[in-house]
Design a protein around this nucleic acid. Structure first.
Length: 480
RNA sequence: CGGGGCGUAGCUCAGCCUGGUAGAGCGCCAGCUUUGGGAGCUGGAUGCCGGAGGUUCGAAUCCUCUCGCCCCGACCA
């Protein structure tokens, strides 16, 4: 402690401002921007992408196997993973879509810490209720802390400290943060990890009608969010579970390898949320009613005997839960005394809602829903790169020159490209590209060069087509 | 938390039963030859056989304990 004081005496506080030390306040406010040609060169010869040829023994489901094989993640301990460059790119893309749609729905992003004080959880009563799943920590001062499994208490605390008037409502606050739940049995890679990235939003409203509007906004936002990732999600009425409240929907993505058995009306397959022009400011109740009219139930809720859907229209499928929304009522606001003053000075206990999206789980869910025997097939909205450029013969000067030139052209055109410039055999390169699943592959080889063409392959359809480099560029431009 | 299984080279695995100087394929490194769907040849490197203790002249192998990981179930964004 003594030495710290000495330090501050020696260096007066104002010298802690960089500008005062170096005169940077006079420096022009222009940041160094490297030329495009130097920015983030993504050459496979130097990119950190450890691919596995064989399936790791511990991975059972396809998304876990492919994420390991494609060099996206590596396990650190049970249910805890490091995200390698390729995986992190996908995670960021998914995060961006979630964020964009939350913002559009009127939610505001903030960031709460991963470590929380036990005190708040004692207020809500959950410190004792939550059980072994919550990772409890004691700091050096013997204070009880915990690694947050969720954030209702913390957001309610922030709310009550800073929002005092009915005029400030409604509010919807969200963050995207790592959570920890000490699952007894983590499995399936990031599908059910102990540490996971989650978007959680919390709404505060003056009355039930307003809370209902907040709920409906998130309902729409969720349908749109998943659709933008190329996923068809189906909202299913759900149990509220230990979080509480009495209105809740799970958003299930259909995938053959999904964890839960679900039943729904086949008409769900025909729906297209992105075609809907409904706006967040509209009255969303008719929309909500329409989108909950069709039958959909998880195995727990499904009752074959009393199912309203005729057998020929009933679809039995596997599904993955990628999000859940809850109406909470005053479950947290009341015990934690989060109140605002009403128009007449009366105290109003806000109605709350909470809304979760499993961001890291979505990476796995998308793979489960979109892959083939050769590897991943990324929807373009979340793909780690728009395209892969393959120099089929890295030892050949003409091939390399043409590939280098095309790489520059693609980059200048804003097409995010991973350039395979390795001296590998053709087969190995094709296999690697298929495995990591970029939407487009552009193959530059000696055979095509003689005819003045490159080959463009669509990963999803498998269709391959020869065209000039210029046409290829236009094709990719049009596609992105 | 109940039940089951597995820890040997970067990966997939053999060796263990029946103790006797650590293995294969792929990957990695070097060289040469190849080159349009995971190339060939030659040479090379790589292991506290998960950890600790015990039995034994001698332990990857047998015994005890322990740690880690995976699977089924219950639980779960």
């Amino acid at each position: 402690m003594r030495s710290r004081l000495d330090f501050f005496r020696k260096f007066p506080t104002k010298l802690n401002f960089l500008s005062e030390i170096s005169g940077m306040d006079r420096a022009p406010r222009v940041f160094y921007s490297p030329p495009l040609s130097k920015r983030g060169l993504m050459r496979l010869s130097t990119y950190f992408l450890p691919l596995l040829r064989e399936n790791p023994a511990e991975a059972q489901i396809v998304s876990h196997r492919l994420m390991l094989r494609a060099g996206m993640i590596r396990q650190s301990s049970a249910g805890i993973y490091s995200w390698l460059p390729l995986g992190l790119r996908v995670l960021h893309n998914i995060e961006a879509i979630v964020r964009a749609e939350q913002d559009a729905a009127g939610a505001q992003e903030l960031l709460m810490p991963t470590i929380q004080p036990a005190e708040l959880w004692r207020e809500s009563g959950r410190y004792d209720d939550y059980g072994e799943e919550m990772l409890r920590i004691r700091d050096r001062h013997d204070r009880d802390m915990l690694y947050g499994p969720t954030n209702e208490e913390l957001i309610t605390d922030i709310f009550r400290q800073n929002i005092k008037s009915y005029r400030d409502l409604p509010k919807n606050l969200y963050h995207i943060q790592w959570k920890f739940r000490d699952e007894v049995r983590p499995r399936f890679g990031v599908m059910r990890g102990r540490e996971f990235l989650m978007k959680d939003a919390y709404s505060f409203d003056l009355d039930l009608a307003s809370a209902r509007r907040s709920y409906n906004k998130m309902f729409l936002a969720y349908l749109r969010t998943f659709a933008r990732m190329g996923l068809k999600s189906i909202p299913m009425r759900a149990d509220t579970g230990p979080i509480g409240g009495d209105l809740s929907h799970e958003f299930i993505v259909l995938a053959d390898t999904g964890e839960s058995q679900v039943y729904c009306d086949k008409a769900w397959l025909e729906t297209d949320i992105l075609a809907s022009t409904v706006d967040y400011d509209d009255d969303l109740q008719p929309f909500f009613d329409q989108w909950t009219r069709l039958y959909a139930a998880t195995e727990e809720k499904h009752d074959a005997a009393n199912c309203s859907v005729p057998a020929d229209r009933l679809l039995a499928a596997r599904g993955i839960e990628v999000g859940q929304i809850f109406f909470l009522g005053t479950k947290y606001s009341k015990p934690m005394n989060a109140v605002v003053a009403g128009p007449n000075g009366e105290q109003i206990v806000p109605e709350m809602g909470c809304y979760g999206i499993g961001v890291s789980r979505l990476v796995a869910a998308i793979i489960e829903a979109s892959h083939d025997d050769a590897g991943i097939i990324w929807p373009k909205s979340v793909a780690p790169f728009d395209a892969g450029l393959v120099n089929l013969r890295a030892g050949d000067a003409a091939c390399t020159d043409a590939s280098d030139a095309l790489y520059q052209t693609l980059r200048n055109a804003g097409i995010d490209t991973l350039y395979d410039d390795r001296a590998e055999s053709a087969g190995a390169k094709f296999a690697a590209m298929d495995l990591i699943g970029l939407p487009w592959q552009i193959v530059v080889g000696p055979r095509g060069l003689q005819k003045g063409v490159v080959e463009v392959k669509n990963r999803r359809t498998g269709q391959r087509e020869d065209m000039t480099a210029e046409t290829a560029l236009n094709r990719l431009r049009a596609a992105s």
